[in-house]
Design a binder for these strands. Structure first.
Lengths: 340, 340
DNA sequence: TTGATAAATGTAATGGCTTACATAAGAAGT
DNA sequence: ACTTCTTATGTAAGCCATTACATTTATCAA
């Protein structure tokens, strides 16, 4: 199907110069005489020539490409951060390659290998938790990787992100301050996901430090999705002791819970408080507007871009960046009802 | 920063075989004796070898890569479609490369060149409208491009998508059936965006065919975003003759309008009807749930993947696919109030 | 004019992989 | 044991750029 694309050589012939001259025209235009340059450029134009990236990468030993591997593009929070990341890269002449893994570690591994093979000069990864083998591989390949969306003070690997545990703990404290003692948590799947488990820990920490028994936390793990949040809410409210406040691992789950509450005619926040995490746009337009933890996704993407580019270009060591989060009180969190 | 990665040659030495054998081990494992294979594989393993994509692509003259260029990842509708597209590609052993353009034609051109240079075997593009020069370039490079998210019966270029005009016309007819005659439209920017202008046409067609004067349509063009929708709504309701129904170019704008309506204490749908387009998740969780045009984004992504892979692999000519859309009546559209 | 210096262009090695073709080693048939 | 096929492996020629170095041409001072 694909017919052979024009090569440097074809252009050289068309312009009756050497390939070196053509290459220089394209990469260092001021090193070649105007007259020659025009000749070459018009040949490039008329042939529709575009340099072969593989050959270029091989000869020049750099690609100006950075790979980003995220769990899913369907999550607005990643989409935002990445958009900012890409903008930052563009500013410095880098191109971003994205791949998504659907939260499957084996696909992540495949994608990492694929991007490395493509000559990515650096990688953006989400979260710390992955097979150590992968870190060894990146090491062997000499490809730097920047961890984001998390900031784990205990990890030796630098990252640009926020402290999931502390952020959720702060929110849980708020909830507890509102008088809630019967808490539940609709969590994302925690296996292979340090963000999700850190958030769970945050709640448990808050409970302990407030003198509650962390074991009393009812917790449901579920996949990502509005419907999933709805189902979890249903289970929480139908079976077992009813919580008065439900924390959710992310806004999407929270919005699902909110929807089911409406369907079940359970008033939010009068009958039950619901809070989310991430503060994506959804949170503001939900009804009632969702109380949630604000995360500066764009800022995170930008900073990650700066740090990574600086490292790849100038060898500046990667330094961790901790970004602040804060609870946003909107309307789905209210003081517990007397008698609950 | 980057220290040299192990090469085929290194592996060959470590396993004391020729590079050809290593290559075969990796690409056609059954052509080499089990004993040799094991030897090679363990060398690959211990060196952390990963083939250099550029070299591979150059030698093999194919990349099994398909590029997708979309306006923005922040729009759930593209994210969804792409996710499905990627899944389909994976099934056939292809990898997807995404790039986004922020709706800027010059960035799109840059991205197209970049992906072609990277050896993409095919491209997925959104909408027909772009500089003819680009189509010529793709032609010269022999890279097939599939147009999606639109289906324009009048275009000679095949596409997999839906008829934006007809879809919006159908919705507008519904609105008119509900007795509305004072219509307004909050549109996405129509310049360089055939989807947006087709949707506008759809409304005008509906008005004309219902005996209304299409010139009476109040129309505001705005950028993409919730806040932008809110602002547009505000302008529409504050200045000039108040419409009784507002159609929006997409759900995000509609949700913005909805939010502002709540803030202004304008009841929806009692005081004004609002309808969206795309049927992303936002639409269902908005309050009240948004009446909108359903577009099968995932299906579209899947079909696009099939068509493109089939073309790239087997040379099957690209045939247009028209996907159905339908108005989803939820709660933001109601009959016009008597006396309005 | 000439010789020296700078500017423009050309020559050819290089990078990592695939693959057609050549060769070597085993299996099978007589 | 000896030829004849297979099967497994090796050899080496590309693929398409970049770039160090060599060469040619232009420029200018003396």
């Amino acid at each position: 199907m694909k017919r052979p694309a024009p090569t440097l050589h074809d252009v050289a012939i068309a312009a009756s110069v050497s390939t070196a001259t053509v290459s220089r025209c394209l990469n260092f235009p001021d090193q070649v005489a105007k007259q020659t340059r025009d000749k070459v450029m018009s040949a490039v134009e008329s042939l529709g020539y575009s340099p072969n990236f593989g050959a270029k990468a091989m000869a020049a030993r750099r690609t100006n490409t950075i790979g980003a591997i995220i769990p899913t593009m369907e999550n607005a929070m990643f989409a935002r951060g990445l958009e900012a990341f890409q903008e930052e890269l563009r500013l410095h002449g880098f191109t971003m390659l994205v791949a998504s893994t659907s939260y499957r570690p084996e696909i992540e591994e495949e994608q990492i290998k694929s991007l490395v093979a493509r000559g990515a000069d650096g990688l953006l990864l989400i979260g710390h938790e992955r097979d150590p083998e992968i870190y060894r591989f990146l090491e062997a390949q000499g490809v730097p990787a920047l961890i984001t969306w998390v900031f784990d003070p205990r990890s030796e690997r630098p990252s640009v992100g926020f402290d999931n545990r502390a952020a959720m703990m702060e929110m849980a404290m708020k909830v507890i301050e509102f008088g809630h003692t019967k808490l539940a948590f609709i969590s994302a799947v925690t296996a292979q996901n340090d963000r999700a488990s850190a958030r769970l820990n945050g709640i448990q920490n808050a409970m302990s430090s407030a003198g509650l028994n962390a074991n009393d936390l009812r917790c449901i793990e579920t996949n990502y999705g509005i419907e999933e949040g709805a189902v979890a809410f249903d289970r929480l409210m139908t079976n077992g002791p009813r919580p008065t406040a439900i924390l959710c691992g992310n806004d999407v789950l929270a919005v699902g819970a909110l929807r089911r509450a409406r369907e079940l005619k359970i008033a939010v926040p009068q009958d039950v408080s619901i809070v989310g995490f991430d503060d994506i746009e959804l949170a503001q337009v939900a009804y009632p507007p969702l109380t949630t933890v604000h995360v500066p996704h764009r800022e995170m993407g930008r900073r990650a871009g700066q740090v990574l580019v600086d490292h790849v270009k100038n060898g500046t060591p990667i330094k961790s960046v901790l970004l602040p989060t804060r609870p946003i009180l909107r309307e789905t969190l209210a003081p517990v009802k007397a008698g609950s």
